[in-house]
Simulated assay, not measured.
Amino acid sequence: MYLGRVIGTVVSTSKNQDLIGMKLLIVERLDEHLQRIGETEIAVDSVGAGNGEIVIICGGSAARYVFGGNVPVDKSIVGIVDTVETM
């Protein structure tokens, strides 16, 4: 899992049937200081995240389990972050 910031949405009228009704968000990966690192990605939202929010992203096979394991998903948003503290 890692931190990300929602920077936009994706609308796709033609997609896999298992993705119908799911919200697709564009996220940028963040480091522990909330600075952007890496590339942007598209993640399926499971928590109602909105533009500009800091979120927790789950990737790989674990991302599919959020939706029952049968959905073709590689990145899932699994939490909205309230605060981040580093030592």
Rank of each mutant, 00 (worst) to 15 (best):
M1H: 15
M1D: 14
Y2E: 06
G4Q: 02
G4N: 05
R5E: 03
R5V: 04
V6T: 09
I7W: 07
I7R: 10
I7V: 11
T9L: 07
T9M: 09
T9S: 13
V10L: 05
V10W: 05
S12G: 10
S12F: 06
T13F: 07
T13D: 05
S14E: 02
S14G: 04
S14K: 10
S14C: 06
K15T: 01
K15S: 01
K15G: 00
Q17F: 07
Q17V: 11
Q17G: 03
Q17A: 10
D18V: 01
D18Q: 03
I20Y: 12
G21V: 15
G21Y: 15
G21M: 14
K23A: 12
K23C: 10
K23T: 13
K23R: 14
L24P: 08
L24M: 14
I26Y: 03
V27Q: 08
E28D: 09
E28G: 06
E28K: 13
R29P: 04
R29C: 10
L30N: 13
L30Q: 13
D31H: 08
H33S: 14
H33M: 13
L34F: 00
L34R: 02
L34M: 01
R36L: 11
R36P: 11
I37C: 00
I37S: 00
G38P: 01
G38L: 03
E39W: 10
E41K: 11
I42K: 02
I42M: 03
I42C: 03
A43Q: 03
A43P: 02
A43W: 01
V44K: 13
V44Q: 12
V44E: 13
D45M: 10
S46N: 14
S46W: 04
S46G: 13
S46K: 12
S46Q: 09
V47M: 15
V47N: 15
G48F: 05
G48L: 09
G48W: 09
A49T: 02
G50N: 10
G52E: 09
E53G: 09
E53A: 12
E53I: 08
E53M: 13
I54H: 11
I54R: 08
V55F: 09
I56M: 12
I56N: 06
I56A: 09
I56W: 05
I57L: 01
I57Q: 00
G59C: 14
G59L: 12
G59M: 12
G59H: 13
G60W: 00
G60V: 00
S61A: 07
S61P: 07
A62V: 01
A62N: 02
A63W: 03
A63Q: 04
A63E: 03
A63K: 02
R64Q: 02
R64L: 00
Y65A: 05
Y65T: 03
F67M: 02
F67V: 01
F67R: 00
G69H: 06
N70H: 11
V71F: 05
V71A: 04
V71K: 07
P72I: 08
D74T: 02
D74R: 06
D74Q: 04
K75Q: 06
S76F: 00
S76Y: 01
I77A: 07
V78T: 14
V78F: 13
I80N: 01
V81Q: 15
V81C: 15
V81N: 15
D82K: 07
D82Q: 08
T83G: 13
T83N: 14
V84M: 04
V84L: 09
V84K: 09
V84I: 11
V84P: 05
E85Q: 12
E85M: 10
E85D: 08
M87Y: 09
